[in-house]
Amino acid sequence: MVKNKLSFRVYMIILVFILAGVSILSMAWGQIDIPLKTAAAFLFKSMGIPVLTDVPVSPEQQAVLLHIRLPRTIVGLLVGAGLAASGTVMQGLFANPLADPGIVGVSSGASLGAVIAIATGFSEMSMFATPLFALCGAACAVILTVGLAMRHGKVPMMMLLLSGVVVGMLLAAATAGILTVVNEHKLQQYLFWTIGGLDYRRWEHVLMGIGPILGGIAVMLLMARHLNVLVLGDIEAKAVGLPVVKYRLGFLALAAMTTSVGVCISGNIGFVGLVVPHMMRMLIGPDHRYLLPASVLAGASFLVLCDSIGRVIASPSEVRVGIMTALIGTPYFLYLLRKTYTTTR
């Protein structure tokens, strides 16, 4: 499925419009219903675009929009974009459409970090404690995974995959071990963290995530051409003069860092990094210079859309976004597996 550059532009424009539309939806939907028009007017006003200036925004609406909905939406956009970009990079690195950042131990490491923060009580002292511990956990897990897979200065992808699985199981066991000795309140706290959600996300979360996630995405976009060569395998990459190990570890670090920062500010959210890149590859083709930007936009839209639906689907209570992405992602993933299986066998 190969698309020319013109249709790439068309897709990008459509994706930007979807992104804008989904953002307005996310601003409007929720426990306090705000008309779409008001939400749009607020967004345009805060971006300084002179559209819909005649629509009044009441002080209560203003407060809800500015302090609750806007940070929540921005965190959703950032995390969605970061997860989708990392997923695209991981699928390219492993030359496997079913890879996602979790396979090098990012999510299990972050979970262990979070559970340690909760069990030791650090999470009660500062709202930054759990994210910080989760980030350290994720970093340790990735370093352990890569360290185990490293042989004579080379990182064979099969070894990386296997050591990722082993490290993931080990850390999950450690997490479970800690959970068996903590009290019920802490158990609840962990459970709440592990099912990723965007509720109660404030500007502090935006501040924590915006730098590393946008930075990570920017570097990935710059390096996209190298990923195209890396996908063809070690020998092919070396034959055209690409320093394989250096670039492979660099991409791995970028994807792991972006994912873990996302996980830190919103908990574990699955399927975005798996499904979105795959969907975009079917539309745009596998050239990462086009695939990556499309995945970034689509991932951001997908996560915020899932969050918005989760807010209204079981109103007045909320379905957390980690559950929503799985609910929407699982059927698609199963369909994908069946399809790949029938075409390759």
Partner: peptide
């Protein structure tokens, strides 16, 4: 690696291409 790639090119026995790249994209590499 880079100097080597400017002097010699290498055609492998069997290249596994995981995604449906176009012919032009492959030649571009």
């Amino acid at each position: 690696d880079h100097e080597f790639a400017c002097l010699t090119a290498y055609l492998q026995q069997d290249v596994h291409i995981a995604f449906d790249y176009s012919v032009r994209e492959i030649v571009n590499t």
